[in-house]
Simulated assay, not measured.
Amino acid sequence: MASSSRRSGPNRTVKPVDPYGALVLAGGSARRLGGVHKPGLLVGGVRLLDRVLAAVPDAAPRVVVGPPQPTPPDVRMVREEPPGGGPVAALSAGLTALGDAAQQPISRLALLAGDLPFLSPAVITALRRGADGRDGAVLVDPDGRDQYLAGVYRLEALADAVASVGPPTGVPLRRVVTRLDLARIAAPDRPDGAPPWLDCDDADDVRAAEAFARRASGQ
């Protein structure tokens, strides 16, 4: 249920954002990291998956798609079919689980990769506001690349796009999301300069993430 509008400053009205759910894709083969389970890697002493979930503390429901792994009590864990069937298969399984787990109707969904250590609630709020009146909003990195797994989507539009591609196994995510009307959002600045779109795909990315984490902690 949306809250009433709040005023920020003398002449500015901040529009409330609707309730939303969160879906984290936390599988994948991580070939460039030797096949390790990426969401379980530690950055600054905290698991990547825990960092991502901390960016959406007010989402309900919260669903993680991937192999069995520790999650907070409120998080539902599911597996795509077949295991390793790719991001759209994981998305499809997650959408089904969201429908089963939702305690109240939601119109928006944060769709996130499980290896983004520097997402924050502020970034998610910027995406939720940016998605207003559109099918969704995604982060854009400084090179202009859309980060489809750092986005907030209109749930109905995303589900329709998934259904329209047929069997989801092996389908690239781009084939789904390019059917949508998306806003492209530059991330709010962080005091430590850590980029919210940084994903830990390889060893260099993990080292860069550790360096940002050390800077944030003052080490």
Rank of each mutant, 00 (worst) to 15 (best):
S3K: 07
S4V: 14
S4L: 14
S5Q: 07
R6K: 13
N11E: 10
V14P: 01
V17E: 13
G21L: 08
A22L: 13
L23Q: 01
L23K: 04
L25D: 00
G27C: 06
G27N: 05
A30I: 09
A30E: 03
R31D: 07
R32L: 11
G34K: 12
H37P: 02
H37W: 14
K38L: 09
P39R: 05
L42P: 03
V43D: 00
G45K: 09
V46K: 04
R47A: 06
D50Y: 02
D50Q: 05
R51C: 06
L53C: 07
V56G: 02
P61M: 09
R62P: 02
V63S: 02
V65E: 03
G66M: 06
P67C: 00
P70G: 08
D74Q: 13
R76S: 13
M77V: 13
M77S: 15
R79S: 10
R79T: 12
R79G: 00
P83R: 09
G85T: 12
P87N: 05
V88T: 11
V88E: 06
A89R: 05
A89L: 08
A89P: 10
A90H: 07
S92P: 05
G94I: 05
T96E: 14
L98P: 05
G99A: 09
D100V: 15
D100A: 15
D100M: 14
A101N: 09
A101L: 10
A102K: 06
A102C: 06
Q103N: 08
L112W: 09
A113R: 06
F118E: 02
F118A: 03
L119P: 02
P121A: 03
A122F: 07
A122S: 15
V123F: 08
T125S: 14
A126Y: 09
R128M: 13
A131E: 00
D132T: 15
D132F: 14
R134C: 08
G136N: 01
V138I: 08
L139H: 02
L139D: 00
V140S: 02
V140N: 01
P142Q: 08
D143H: 14
D143S: 12
G144L: 09
G144Q: 10
R145Q: 12
D146R: 11
L149E: 02
G151Q: 00
Y153G: 04
Y153F: 15
E156S: 14
E156I: 11
A157K: 12
A157I: 07
A159V: 10
A159N: 06
D160P: 05
A163G: 10
A163L: 14
S164E: 12
P168A: 04
T169W: 12
V171G: 02
P172F: 03
V176Q: 01
V177I: 10
T178Q: 14
R179W: 11
L180H: 05
L182W: 06
A186S: 13
P188W: 10
P188H: 09
P191E: 09
P191H: 10
P195I: 04
W197A: 00
L198H: 01
C200M: 12
D201G: 12
D201V: 10
D202Q: 06
D204K: 11
D204R: 15
A208Y: 01
A209P: 06
A211S: 14
F212D: 03
A216N: 05
S217K: 11
G218T: 08
